[in-house]
Design a binder for these strands. Sequence first.
DNA 1: CTAAGTGCAAAATGTTTGCATACTT
DNA 2: AAGTATGCAAACATTTTGCACTTAG
Lengths: 133, 133
Amino acid sequence: MNYNTKQRELILNCLMENSDKHLNAFEIMELLKVKKINVGQATIYRTLEKLIKENIIIKYITKDNSACYQYIADDNCVMHNHLICSECGELIHIKGKYLDRLSEHIQNEYGFLIDKFRTVFYGKCKSCGGQTK
Amino acid sequence: MNYNTKQRELILNCLMENSDKHLNAFEIMELLKVKKINVGQATIYRTLEKLIKENIIIKYITKDNSACYQYIADDNCVMHNHLICSECGELIHIKGKYLDRLSEHIQNEYGFLIDKFRTVFYGKCKSCGGQTK
DNA sequence: CTAAGTGCAAAATGTTTGCATACTT
DNA sequence: AAGTATGCAAACATTTTGCACTTAG
């Protein structure tokens, strides 16, 4: 169903190499251009949509209203949630009992099942001042 | 600094009356038009931005990629987080010890301070099948 | 009276689509 | 060979901007 094309590989590699940052579609295109590779913008958008559906990357909106994409599917990322710093875009993978308990509680109390792929915690990371408040 | 204009009131009322749904800019404009009120689109966008900055509403992206706005600042909403159903858009306000413990843990462990206004839990509500999984 | 907000139309931005061609399986 | 992906350019949707005018404080 999904063909493994050169373009898909390139885009995915680009996102994997930058999994600590959030990139928008334009930036991905530029990064590929620097490497003398030209991938049409339609292909970028179409591929990103597919990667989202496969839960390999996430999409979200930054404070300045731009749509960004970020690679999340490392190791056993299935069980992870993600913290994203609104200031610098740093991505932190989290898991653990506190999170599990919260999920359980929400499920029991409200019948609400959290989607770990779509849910992202926004805030400020250590170096951007999170710890001081 | 923020003038209390007729247009601002109208937009805010519209969002308050629909606090259980998510509306996009166009829908807000249409809802006002139905009431024979014409508010320019530029005003809608400019006002929404201000309301977001004031933490009165939140903005987020739905599954079908449209930007939506929703009123959150009821009662003592300051301490709340929000669950949003990806299917029907239902908004649920949550708080409690599980959430507080998670926040604390994340702060201690990672130095990361969660922004409750920006962070939204996505998932499926009871009536959309959240409980059954 | 001054600062802030408004409406319109135009411009800019970001994303999607149609279609002929090329690539994967 | 069939199904899927690509690139281009055009179309589209959404959001932002400039400017003259109005309104709130």
